[in-house]
Write a protein that binds this DNA or RNA. Structure first.
Lengths: 406, 406
DNA sequence: GTCAAATAATTCAACCACTAAACAATTTCC
DNA sequence: GGAAATTGTTTAGTGGTTGAATTATTTGAC
């Protein structure tokens, strides 16, 4: 119960726009001021929260002391191996990127051990830099473009990997000793990265609006007015995302790389699938008797909207994407689709073609909108999402972190 | 916390094969015998559990007194409106069907008010019969073949309904006064019905096996050996379902009626979609330029595997189903697909055709099996699932039920 | 400048629910 | 018949919460 309430308080502070006072947290959570005080004391002592200067005064009374997440506590180490680069970043508890290093180099000629060794070096320097900066790296997560099971990369076709125990390789790096390390699919983690940047606070208390209310409000397929990413806002890391509040916490993220992956986020939670293999949208059938795919099937989406096909014909790609995405929406009732990876920069030219298919093929298109939007994060999404899994674990179970310190 | 532990104890008793003692519940839950005693006393006083004769002795020591769910307490009223019948059933806390009445009649000529009035009469007699039998009807749920939003049936094409406030109509029936009433999609509820019958207990304590372990064990698409439903076992309501334990709690249920719907159950939870409109697999595109569908699109699954098409060509239906289901598995990594409705009786002739497509088009088919199986429940599935939502609510929050009594 | 009103945070007694350990009840086994 | 075993209850103790009272610090009125 204490663990639950610690998490509740931490989330409330994290999701507030300006530093809330203990009293504000109490009213927001429904707990007593006394209880909140006790919990906050623990979180401050444990180095997860810090007291900051009071927010601008608002009337009579004793001035409040503000609370924010620390920028000197636990941090997450995000790693990525992709076809043409290695990358590492450190993200602190507030979600700020504190270190970032990308090493461009084609990984396909390298064998897995070489690539992982190079990544290990990147990770080691990132950890050093972070700890010199007062951060405590709480764990590392690695994004790879392939199917992952139990820490092992089963298949990563575009890297040419098969049954590579990436976790074991990283654990062997001496500078990473003692760190919990996980591996996950690139698209899944990119979806989490997108969520961290655009997700915003969970709908506090109020339930999602009824479908009834939605349908009355805005029929048809829609996209935000200024759909192209606003560079200034994106740089500030605080993109204003239009739409209904739950649009920001439930979406399908499509990652268009050489292959095509997807990450499904439902109400702020990533759905990984029973065995961790969800999101293989690249091999959804679009044209049953179409082009042969290297997976052995015919007419896979990847053959029409993968990077190769994309270079040849963007409109064909858009139509194929539209067909596959219609299936997703019909099956899962996802209100928002985020186009990432190679799709983000050409969102403008894909949008109409995708929307045309959605309008035609989504059964509920007339009842409620399906919103299309470009990804906010660019090529860093997966690495950022990987780091986010670490700080998310601390945020969701601060009690464990406090125990770990003592 | 008390609420949580009450639910924990209730679940433990519910999921035990024979009536457990207080001590057995204590060891199973990890709570103290003292705590369990206190909780059980509350549940017995509230009429959710009853003490029964001790199970056969097993050694020395004071004899235990067994605990079971009551068969005289809260009950769920399950209702269904479909194209050619109305139905009502009452299910008690143990999951036993205590009353059941089906009224065959084509509902299409009737206007919604007439149909709902007839259903109201059915529901009223069911409630009476149940209460004469010592049951307390805790609520009612209605299954309809259509899109539902906030208690309103937005569209039910095969009934010819549009924007029918079914909940309001039923609430107006005097004999149903005071009952919480909900409406839901037929396929969603049928999936829950299937879960109740085949789901079994949640994997106690142990996590799902790693994908790694699975892949090593059994590659390829598989189906249970004796795949046709065993009538004797089905009648006993205790069908032995083969496969891994989590297979029973994560599956996609396909309901083949005039239209085709699907209900997705993940780890024992029904996924309804953000707006409640998930599972419209009937309008997933199979052949992008194929037959025109009444939804306005082309090549929808319904045109190739709906009841009409099914009558013409079962093999075409199987191939189309295989293509659409491959998309589902690629996207969601669902390990089991349950064929219900009109598909269940002809499972044998559909199976090979579906499996061929799955083998070809599911990317991970070589890593882990996709199991196909016929539904266990037959035409009662949706109605049973509807009733189950009511008793599930009581089971998941027994504290609320106890409060309600006082 | 002083005092009342307002707001923030802490302290303290009471309470609820769980744990641990002792105890009572009832059986089997020797 | 008595020791051992097992179930279920009782009792004292503890952690974490609430609610009320208390302290701290500011604004605004006079």
């Amino acid at each position: 119960m204490r663990a639950h309430n610690l998490a509740l308080v931490l989330h409330t502070v994290a999701n507030s726009t300006d530093p809330p006072s203990r009293a504000a947290v109490a009213t927001a959570t429904g707990l007593t001021r006394a209880t909140v005080s006790a919990l906050v004391d623990d979180l401050v002592a444990g180095g997860l929260l810090v007291e900051v200067d009071p927010p601008p005064r608002t009337g009579a009374g004793r001035p409040a002391v503000g609370l924010t997440l620390t920028s000197a506590g636990p941090a997450g180490l995000g790693l990525e191996i992709n076809v043409d680069y290695l990358a590492a970043c450190v993200v602190d508890l507030t979600g700020a990127v504190r270190h970032r290093h990308v090493e461009r180099a084609d990984q396909r000629p390298a064998d897995p051990a070489q690539a992982l060794a190079a990544l290990g070096r990147l990770a080691a320097t990132a950890r050093h830099a972070a700890e010199a900066d007062g951060l405590i790296v709480a764990g590392a997560a690695l994004a790879v473009p392939g199917l992952v099971a139990g820490g092992v990369v089963r298949v990563a076709p575009n890297l040419g990997w098969q049954d590579v125990d990436a976790v074991a390789a990283l654990r062997a790096v001496p500078e990473l000793a003692g760190l919990p390390i996980t591996v996950d699919n690139e698209a899944n983690l990119a979806a989490l990265g997108e969520l961290r940047v655009t997700g915003g606070p969970p709908p506090t208390g109020t339930a999602a609006p009824t479908a009834q209310a939605i349908a009355a409000a805005a029929p048809g397929v829609t996209a935000p007015a200024g759909a192209a990413p606003d560079p200034a806002a994106a740089a500030a890391g605080d993109l204003p995302i239009p739409g209904h509040p739950w649009d920001r916490r439930s979406f399908l993220y499509i990652s268009g790389e050489i292959g095509i992956g997807a990450g499904l986020v439902i109400d702020g939670e990533l759905y990984r699938g029973v065995r961790g293999w969800s999101g293989e949208i690249g091999h959804v059938t679009v044209y049953p008797d179409g082009r042969p795919c290297r997976c052995g099937a015919r007419g896979c989406l990847e053959q029409y909207a993968g990077q190769e096909a994309l270079a040849r014909d963007e409109q064909l790609a858009a139509a194929a994407l539209g067909i596959a995405l219609s299936a997703v929406v019909n099956l899962l009732d996802v209100p928002v689709i985020v186009l990432g990876g190679a799709y983000a920069p050409i969102f403008g030219s894909l949008r109409d073609g995708i929307e045309a298919e959605l309008r035609r093929r989504v059964l509920t298109a007339g009842l409620a909108p399906v919103t299309l939007r470009p990804a906010a994060l660019g090529p860093d999404a997966a690495m950022r999402g990987a780091a986010d899994t670490i700080i998310r674990a601390v945020r969701e179970d601060p009690a464990a972190w406090l125990r770990r310190l003592s």
